[in-house]
Write a protein that binds this DNA or RNA. Structure first.
Lengths: 218, 218
DNA sequence: GCTCTGGCTCAAGGTTTGGTCAAGATGCGA
DNA sequence: TCGCATCTTGACCAAACCTTGAGCCAGAGC
């Protein structure tokens, strides 16, 4: 899965520059230039990393961060032009995951974003608290015991674990795991889900008749 | 994530002074005043940077460094009162990452610590603790025995060692080792990994089917 | 209780993937 | 220039995995 990055800054030249660097790394990049749009975007598109300037028109970066944190566990990397703001960023109770002081080198930013994506995801422990999914390591753990999954099984589980309790249709799973060009039967998903259940045990992946699957939320 | 710093010095005034400066930068700071406690602390708390005085009661700073290096890749900045020790610090086979000669200005030390934290992480010690990788010296050691690797083999190992346990795709490896302009088959990576395994032995580089490779995390 | 639809189980090809090996190409140092 | 180490490519093989289809089972509505 291509990591998805949202850049939030009101200076177009910076957006363009950084976007170029990130896209060269193979990331999917979106940009917005104000705080409200940023919150909207995170809600709708669920990016993996948000690069967020503190100084924004309308609501500022801190407020954006606070709002994002009420519904998302995306990584947030904050940008600030003032080094005296660093304390505030670091000390924040609902904290940013990293920060950079302007001016920064685009390479540096790319390195930081990469580092964030390597981290095990903050709130990625899903289901009843007995199931943990780590996308970076591609490991799944049930009650502390590691479970060996195939690539497809893991992908399905990771997508479901992104939002425990939220139903994902078979079509969406097909699309997300096999790619948009794949043509084939929904039934294929059933088989992999069955195999997945055989490995992680029952009670985690729930069937929603007529719709799809969801992960039990503890 | 707040960077974590360990200060090791037996002079309380210096500890207090430097601690103040580092905490004002937003770092989490611990202090200990002897070598054994320092090794213990690094093992338990896994700080990001260790600021280590050479002159210590009990075991000296060089011995502390050597022991730390057997299990940790934390950055180590050494402090010395004698300029003639600098050669030894720099020449050390398991080297410190930086050094400062006393008397130094606290600002200078803060700047050096910051610089260390900006460095891409070494990944000095990886896998089961039986494999050590030193990017600066481009050496790899298996259970204490040096292993001779080709440039390509070492590059692959170093990238994997940056984050043991984290899966790196073949595409990422190609990109990182051969550069973004390289066009060629993923299969090339397989061959080099096979050669690498032949030299360092099995059990370190693990295949993640359908995805890529990762280093076993001990 | 019956029927129908959607979901589950199971097993058998068929395909993909990664490991191995070897030969040719390349580049570097003597 | 020659020789050696290394890199790259391609072919082949075994194992893991995916996909398909058929039959069975469970839940919803009548």
């Amino acid at each position: 899965m291509t990591p998805r990055i949202l850049l939030v800054d009101d200076e177009t030249p910076i957006l363009d520059l950084v976007r170029g660097y990130l896209e060269r790394e193979g990331y999917a990049v979106w940009t917005v230039d104000d705080g409200l749009a940023a919150v909207e975007h995170v809600r709708d598109e669920r990016p993996d990393v948000v690069v967020l300037d503190v100084m924004l028109p309308g609501i500022d970066g801190f407020e954006v961060l606070r709002q994002i944190r009420t519904f998302s566990d995306a990584y947030v990397l904050m940008l600030t032009a003032r080094s005296d703001e660093v304390d505030r960023i670091v000390g924040l109770s609902v904290g940013a995951d990293d920060y950079l002081v302007k001016p920064f080198s685009p390479r540096e930013l790319v390195a930081r974003v990469k580092a964030l994506l390597r981290r095990p995801r903050n709130g990625r422990v899903a289901a009843t608290g007995e199931l943990a999914v780590d996308p970076a390591r591609r490991t799944a753990t049930v009650r502390g015991a590691a479970v060996t999954l195939t690539a497809t099984e893991f992908d399905i589980l990771a997508i479901l674990a992104r939002d425990p309790g939220v139903v994902v249709t078979r079509a969406d799973l097909l699309h997300a795991v096999w790619g948009p060009t794949f043509v084939g039967d929904d039934h294929l998903v059933d088989v992999h889900v069955a195999n997945l259940r055989g490995k992680i045990g029952d009670g985690f992946v729930e069937t929603v008749r007529g719709v799809g699957y969801k992960l039990a939320d503890g």
